[in-house]
């Protein structure tokens, strides 16, 4: 027992004294999609009822998570390189992002952006998650669609389409939203052999009934360009994300 403890201390000391030989591990971010307490996958057989009493059937729910950063207990920030992820809700309610080459440390906070930063919006033809062929890109007003939600109000048979984005002109059309979590009292302990899992609940109902506004399909079934309405909806959906627990 004593030997094991000494061994642990020795390892810690080595890491502190020789940061250049620091090892890395992985972190798993989980996005668990819900409508209040009901898991959401697409397609779904039962309609969801929003705050305006409308029956919501989703056909598409996709969004960008980008510029992911972890803050460790020493106050150091680790930034994922080329950090652009497109999450597309399908038959599994839980979507994952695996962060690799994360330096061994105890992490106490997480930050990321919903959307795509302004610089990358104007940096030419992109690939991977940002490939414009993913149809998350406005070709006529170049810029990424940060979140795309489409579907049907089944009572009125009215289609809805929310293509939310915009990065220009300060707050008027800037729909970039940052999410930031303080893990306290938990920590995410990254070692070469232990991959902590950061589990988030994503309550999609907040898209309609969020902090900024009540969005009703009857009055606004199509919001497909940057502007004040898109900014308000982005403030709504920023409210979807909630840290549930960290599993080490």
């Amino acid at each position: 027992m004593a030997v094991a403890l000494m061994s642990c201390d020795k390892d810690n000391n080595d890491n502190n004294n020789n940061p250049s030989t620091a090892t890395t591990g992985k972190v798993l971010l989980e996005f668990d999609h819900h409508w209040n307490s009901t898991a959401v996958s697409i397609p779904h057989s039962t309609d969801f009822i929003n705050g305006s009493g409308e029956l919501v059937q989703f056909s598409t729910f996709r969004y960008y998570i980008s510029n992911i950063e972890l803050v460790d207990s020493e106050g150091n920030t680790w930034k994922e390189e080329e950090s652009y992820h497109l999450l597309s809700l399908g038959t599994n309610a839980v979507l994952e992002i695996e962060l690799d080459l994360v330096p061994t440390a105890n992490y106490v906070g997480l930050r990321y952006t919903i959307g795509v930063d302004s610089l990358r919006n104007v940096s030419g033809a992109q690939t991977g998650a940002l490939d414009p062929a993913n149809t998350m890109f406005w070709t006529w007003n170049s810029g990424y669609i940060f979140l795309k939600a489409e579907g049907l109000e089944t009572n009125t048979q009215k289609n809805f389409a929310y293509h939310i984005g915009g990065f220009r002109n300060g707050n008027r059309t800037n729909a970039l939203q940052e999410i930031s979590y303080d893990f306290a009292p938990s920590q995410a302990e990254v070692t070469p052999s232990a991959t902590p899992l950061i589990h988030q609940m994503v309550n999609i109902k907040k898209l309609f009934d969020g902090a900024a506004m009540t969005l009703s399909i009857a009055s606004s079934s199509n919001v497909v360009m940057p502007g004040q309405m898109a900014v308000d909806i982005s403030r709504n959906y920023a409210d979807m994300f909630e840290l549930h627990h960290i599993h080490n």
Binding site: V122, G124, P132, A133, T135, T139, W140, N141, S142, G143
Partner: peptide, 26 residues
């Protein structure tokens, strides 16, 4: 509306009243 010469052609290619071809199909 278009911010970069590299993304420029994607507008007329995908516009339904111009060339109307999805980039994926192109």
């Amino acid at each position: 509306g278009i911010a970069h010469i590299e993304t420029m052609p994607s507008a007329p290619i995908t516009n339904p009243i111009e060339m109307d071809l999805a980039l994926r199909e192109a």
